[in-house]
């Protein structure tokens, strides 16, 4: 009897397969060449996200994490690959066909100052998605907007205020309320706390966790701060130059990282403990992230990797390592993938 139900919950809410997004940036052989120069922002990204779960997408500026998110919400059209929401393919939809899916996938942005219209009241910001997507009457929309403000810990009576009357943390709460308005199943959080002060950041992280419990939300949580990611994500994917280089559950990734880039990222986070800071073995990566227009041959990380010289037969400079499962005999239910030639 329960078989169909189990099957339905087994299917991931979001399944991304081999997603790529390339941008044309000029011509490769001069102005009149017919070959476009490609910036490979996202290259072959695959992952699953289940209902009520949080997946972290981590990496430094330009690694493709935001572009991945923008493809999923339909703000960018994928160059190739597949994005399925509840089994339905999104990449082939027209703009009109997208509309009913928009309410299921919402987004929270990084900058609470830039992502709210300064000339709209909070009430109208929150009612707008309802006006577009639902048939509720204005009065019902207003009541709903008040309930949303209450849900994110703001005073419902502040409906007629403008964004500038709120602090940064409060504005981010308004952005969260707006994302919740259409009762989505998936919220893409693009660096939602990185513009906030530490004490406010903790409030917003706690709020996001609480709302997740309450509404059974799935989050795709994009961040560069691994300590923040650790507090909110069950699974984490680390991106470098457009590709996922490691993907694992939280505990594995933080206690037993396999990719040298993940290890370097973890060791680079400053820890608020002077004794620990003094004794930590920090891996300092040389140089900068290479340009995605002209990525290195072989493993994209090899020019900065401390292990590349140890690998025999110049494998790292010649062959790009595939994202392969590691030995996870201890936890067969929780796969751990890593793209590295290191054994």
């Amino acid at each position: 009897m329960s078989t169909p139900v189990t099957k339905a919950t087994d299917q991931p809410l979001l399944a991304v397969r081999d997603l790529s997004k390339h941008f044309e940036v000029g011509r490769s052989g001069g102005l009149f060449s017919s070959r476009p120069r490609l910036l490979r922002a996202v290259e072959g990204v695959s992952f699953d996200l289940h209902r009520g779960q949080t997946m972290g997408l981590v990496g430094e500026s330009g690694c493709g994490k935001s572009t991945t998110a923008r493809c999923i919400v339909g703000l960018q059209r994928a160059s190739s690959g597949s994005i399925r929401l509840d089994g339905e393919e999104l990449t082939t939809l027209s703009a009109r066909q997208w509309l009913p899916h928009r309410r299921r996938v919402q987004m929270i942005f990084q900058d609470p100052y830039a992502s709210l219209d300064p000339r709209q009241t909070v009430g109208s910001i929150l009612a707008e998605p309802l006006a577009i997507h639902s048939t509720e009457r204005p009065k019902a929309r207003r009541l709903r907007a008040m309930a949303l403000l209450d849900a994110v810990g703001l005073n419902p009576r502040h409906l007629n205020r403008y964004p500038h009357e709120f602090s940064g943390g409060q504005r981010q709460r308004i952005g969260i309320a707006r994302a919740l308005a259409l009762e989505p199943e998936l919220i893409i959080c693009d660096e939602p706390v990185s513009a906030l002060d530490v004490s406010i950041q903790a409030q917003v992280i706690n709020l996001l966790k609480e709302l997740q419990q309450r509404f059974n939300l799935a989050y795709l949580f994009i961040a560069h701060d691994l300590a923040v990611v650790r507090h909110i994500c069950e699974r984490v994917a680390v991106m470098y130059l457009g590709r996922i280089v490691e993907e694992a559950d939280r505990d594995t990734l933080f206690t037993n990282p396999a990719h040298p880039y993940t290890r370097a990222l973890l060791s680079a986070i400053p820890v608020p403990d002077p004794a620990a800071e003094a004794t930590r073995n920090r891996i300092l990566l040389p140089g900068d992230v290479p340009s995605p227009v002209d990525p290195p041959n072989g493993c994209p990380f090899h020019p900065r990797c401390m292990h590349a010289p140890e690998i025999p037969a110049d494998a790292c400079t010649r062959d790009r390592p595939q994202l392969l499962p590691r030995d996870t005999a201890s936890r067969p239910d929780s796969p751990h993938h890593c793209a590295c030639h290191l054994p």
């Binding site: 602090s167 943390g169 409060q170 002060d197 530490v198 004490s199 406010i200 950041q201 903790a202 409030q203 992280i205 706690n206 966790k209 701060d225 691994l226 300590a227 923040v228 650790r230 507090h231 939280r250 933080f254 973890l266 986070i269 820890v271 608020p272």
Partner: peptide, 25 residues
């Protein structure tokens, strides 16, 4: 004390709520 407690860290229980300073500056 509140500031130090609200920093997410790489140690400690990640599933517990972060301690935060209520209110605004």
């Amino acid at each position: 004390r509140g500031l130090l407690a609200s920093v997410p860290t790489l140690t400690g229980d990640p599933t517990s709520a972060l301690s935060s300073i209520e209110g605004q500056p």
